[in-house]
Nucleic acid binder design. Structure first.
Length: 638
RNA sequence: GCCGGCAUAGCUCAGUGGUAGAGCAGCUGAUUCGUAAUCAGCAGGCCCGGGGUUCGAAUCCCCGUGCCGGCUCCA
């Protein structure tokens, strides 16, 4: 039997040798770094026996596949630990996930935080025993019988649905699990792991099905790598926008006012208004027209738009003079009315209507979270109404818009295309047109994209943009959705060159998405240290003694009149104290003013990073601050 | 909405059946100071709300509300 090492030598090897031995004979050093192998490209256990000619490649624990295998094995070990400590639990599923793993159990009593150390300790014992993972292939019926006698009804349920006659089981110690594999050779291959959380999780992710108990863990090849990961979580905690929002005086969410309702404090309102100014300029530059719709519209309109049918449970209603009004959860309806207000010619298309539209959505209490999930938020929303021929170029325009804006804020992003879901309306032709246009636009900009089959809105396919923040976390911001329903329901038409009436296509799109969410992401991305153009307070003047108060106040007025966002700290405190507080407020420039500066009409700015500049002429520094206040132009100097 | 945890001063947190505490912040006074905390004093609480157990509840039990971590949903 001829075995070839990928990008390596070929050897004649006796049939029936295990993968690990074959690798060794091919000169691969086998230690705990190697957890599995690829046999002709397919992930395989190291213990598997080779029967025919093939190509081999080792899979190291620090490769993405190797890590996933190790984490998956960790979930099995956790399941064994849980089964041995709590014999009454049934096991459901336990995959590897980003940074770790989980396992779902049906437990007679919920787990508590005190259970975690016990389970972890038991896992430690299992790891110390170095139990081998053994793969066994059996007939599906045999597996069903086995799990049924064990009382593992969830495994039986899974088995009854998977196709094929034969399935694989993995055993380590006393624990046997239905599993595709592969696994690490034995429990001592686990590396560093830690149980991190408990939560409820619906069986099969369906809220109509029973809730199981999920245990989360994290696992890495080495303790150092796990430490780095835990440190990253700690860093995320430090950057939490809910904490920084309070500390920096940006916003609050008060129990008295109601959950999910953001109250902007002065600094937060300034930041928000800077972003809104930016948005207006960017949209006007790209041929959008600003519009504004009312906060509530008659319920009949929401019936017509289909919201009453599809979105009612998320809507707030109010009544006046016997009329029922729906408070807007989306901005589209008013935009439809604007379009319909007169006869439209093809010459007007594409019509791009932009609104910083504030919407209210009744979100279920459990999903609310800081600024990222709220009940009232403002979208940078636009509806583009165009001819079918214009759809693709309009989508391109939006993609370029997104690219520009993300570059300005300094975010990388990923793109997803979501296609027709099972429950949907519209003709196949419409769906094809829209999906082709979306895909075509992505292709022509060479944007790599993931396809989420069946994840589209019920009225049309969409492109979602996930920006990545400084901690590599992904956030939904921009989305571009094709919509055939609304032009239909509101009977939108335009007069074509032929003099006949035609139905336009509508694109619904946002760039930043929810300003609230975007603000939250910005806070965490910059850890509260906003770039000068976004900083609510750009500089604070710090007079050392009250002899220089007059000069400090004069300078403050001059900067303020120049449109710069500055403050002055006239308290009779020490410079050290003032610096410390300004530093904690993450103000970009702390400007020291003492007798020398007042004498020479200069300033001594300290930067956020601790750099001290000395005796800069007043006008020179004002020029610098003015320059840095400009919206960055990516592509030009850093 | 579901599972679990938590709720004490503006903030961070001690106090687990017997008279409510600390640090920071705040206020008052002194200090006029050169790059991350000057000193002293004072004040601050329906212990989330409502019921119950108990001679006695911040503490134990029940019901609400809110928050946190997840699930489901989602901008």
């Amino acid at each position: 039997m001829r075995i070839t090492l990928l990008n390596g030598p070929t050897r004649e090897i006796n049939p029936g040798v295990p993968v690990a031995q074959a690798l060794q004979e091919l000169g691969v050093h086998i230690d705990h770094q190697v957890v599995a192998a690829r046999v002709n490209g397919a992930l395989t256990d190291l213990q598997a026996r080779l029967k025919e000619d093939c190509t081999l490649a080792p899979v190291a624990v620090d490769s993405p596949e190797g890590l996933e295998i190790m984490r998956h094995s960790a979930s099995h070990v956790m399941a064994e630990a849980v089964r041995s400590l709590f014999p009454d639990v049934k096991v459901a599923i336990g995959p590897a996930i980003e940074n770790g793993f989980y396992y779902d159990f049906d437990a007679p009593r919920p787990f508590t935080p005190e259970d975690l150390p016990r389970i972890e300790a038991r896992m430690g014992e299992l790891v110390a025993q170095d139990l081998p993972f053994e793969r066994q292939e059996v007939a599906r019926e045999e597996a069903i019988d086995f799990f049924r006698t064990q009382g593992e009804t969830y495994k039986v349920e899974i088995l009854e649905e998977i196709p094929g006659d034969r399935v694989s089981l993995y055993r380590q110690g006393d624990f046997v699990d239905l599993c595709r594999g592969p696994h690490v050779p034995s429990t001592s291959f686990l590396g560093a792991y830690k149980l991190t959380g408990i939560s409820g999780a619906y069986w099969r992710g369906d809220e109509r099905l029973p809730m199981l108990q999920r245990l989360y863990g994290t696992a890495f090849p080495s303790p150092e790598e796990m430490e780095r990961h835990l440190e990253l979580i700690e860093e995320a905690r430090r950057r939490d926008h809910r904490r920084l929002g309070r500390e920096l005086g940006l916003f609050s969410i008060e129990d008295e006012a109601g959950p999910g309702l953001v109250i902007y404090h002065p600094k937060g309102a300034m930041l928000r208004s800077l972003i809104e100014d930016f948005e207006r300029k960017q949209h006007l530059k790209r041929g959008y027209q600003m519009v504004m719709g009312p906060q509530m519209l008659r319920a009949e309109l929401w019936a017509r738009s289909g919201h009453l049918e599809n979105y009612k449970e998320h809507m707030y209603f109010t009544e006046a003079e016997g009329q029922l009004y729906g408070i807007k959860p989306m901005n589209c309806v008013a935009h439809m009315l604007i379009y319909k207000s007169r006869v439209r010619s093809y010459r007007e298309l594409p019509l791009r209507l932009f609104e910083l539209g504030t919407v209210l959505r009744h979100e279920r209490t459990g999903v609310l979270h800081g600024l990222t999930r709220v009940r009232q938020f403002t979208q940078d929303d636009a509806h583009i109404i165009c001819t079918p021929e214009q759809v693709e170029s309009e989508i391109l325009g939006v993609l370029d818009f997104v690219a520009d804006v993300m570059a300005i804020f300094g975010f990388d992003y990923e793109v997803e295309l979501s296609t027709r879901p099972e429950k949907s309306i519209g003709s196949d032709a419409d769906w094809d047109l829209a999906t082709t246009a979306l895909t075509g636009a992505l292709r022509s900009r060479n944007l790599p994209f993931a396809v989420c089959e069946g994840e589209g809105a019920f009225y049309g396919p969409k492109i979602d943009v996930k920006l990545k923040d400084a901690l590599q976390r992904r956030w939904q911001c921009a989305t571009i959705q094709c919509d055939f329903t609304l032009p239909e329901r509101f009977d939108l038409t335009y007069v074509g060159p032929d003099g006949g009436r035609h139905r336009p296509v509508m694109l619904h799109r946002v760039i930043l998405g929810s300003l609230e969410r975007f603000l939250g992401v910005l806070v965490e991305h910059f850890a509260g240290a906003f770039p000068v153009w976004l900083a609510p307070t750009q500089a604070v003047f710090l007079p050392i003694t009250d002899r220089v108060h007059a000069y400090a106040q004069e300078v403050t007025s001059r900067f303020t009149e120049a449109g710069l966002r500055v403050e002055v700290d006239l308290r009779p405190e020490t410079l050290r104290l003032k610096i410390r507080e300004a530093q904690l407020q993450k103000i970009p420039f702390m400007i020291v003013i003492g007798d020398r500066e007042a004498q020479n009409r200069t300033l001594s700015p300290r930067l956020r990073d601790g750099t001290e500049l000395k005796d800069i002429p007043l006008d020179q520094f004002m020029g610098r601050l003015r320059d840095e206040s400009q919206v960055p132009t990516p592509g030009k100097s850093p």
